[in-house]
Design a binder for these strands. Sequence first.
DNA 1: AGTTAAACCTGGTTGC
DNA 2: TGCAACCAGGTTTAAC
Length: 275
Amino acid sequence: MPELPEVEVTRRSIGAALHGAEVRGARLGKPLRWPLGVAPESLTGLRVGELARRGKYLWMPLSNAAAQGGLLWHLGMSGSLAMQPSGVAPGRHDHFDLITTRGTLRLTDPRRFGAVVWSGSLADAPASTLLAHLGFEPFDPELTAARFHAGLRRRRTGIKSLLLGGELIVGAGNIYACEALFHAGIHPARRSDRIGAGAAERLLGALRETLARAMDLGGSTLQDFRDAHGASGAYQAEARVYGRAGQACRTCGQAIRRIVQGQRSTFYCPRCQRH
DNA sequence: AGTTAAACCTGGTTGC
DNA sequence: TGCAACCAGGTTTAAC
């Protein structure tokens, strides 16, 4: 569920609430995608540093005079993080609590594709391994249209699947990959290496505008996404194609189509998006 | 080496 | 109403 906008909205809302807090304890629920990698009680006494984001991962530095490291978080398909009012017992889908002097941060994740992993630093395993193959951050100024185009030319897979892969550019998931391709007027099945310089530049711009707009609106709430304080997102109401199969395109009136690419649904307008 | 399928897990919706 | 089939925001691992 959470793509870059939702993860970034989460980062901002939690970062402000927890920065400088001291960990008092931690509680594990059912297993997540990967083991925590450290005894939960060993986190006690560490202070929370500034929360950072890389792709759809969050990095929470934790340190004191005696120890240094951090937690790498991922929300998977159905995860969310929220500050608990206090004393609320964990439910069946609450699988990790970080109890601090400024409140309890709780990871809720019904499908358990998410994870919380201890790592000595971002440069060491396991964090470094998990982040190793990630592509450009979408707002990295080093990512020029020319570099983006060069990356597209190296691959032959459909452009939508390439965007989802995250090896060239991170952040777009199924919603925003579909939306950005619509705004750029590019068919999702178009081979990556057949996209010209002009279309590449339009696509990079559309990705940035789509992600920025979604962040402004607090992300997309399809089923259950909420920020750390329970606020839902509003971008889903602006979606042009995602989840709109059979409905009329808001630009041309043609029926939006759904196809499957890489076992994921893709939505597009057959008239506005050229193959 | 590059591309695609299978796997992880739970719950909601759809259709017979 | 019951039950099977299919769908869902992601990513790694295995297999062509």
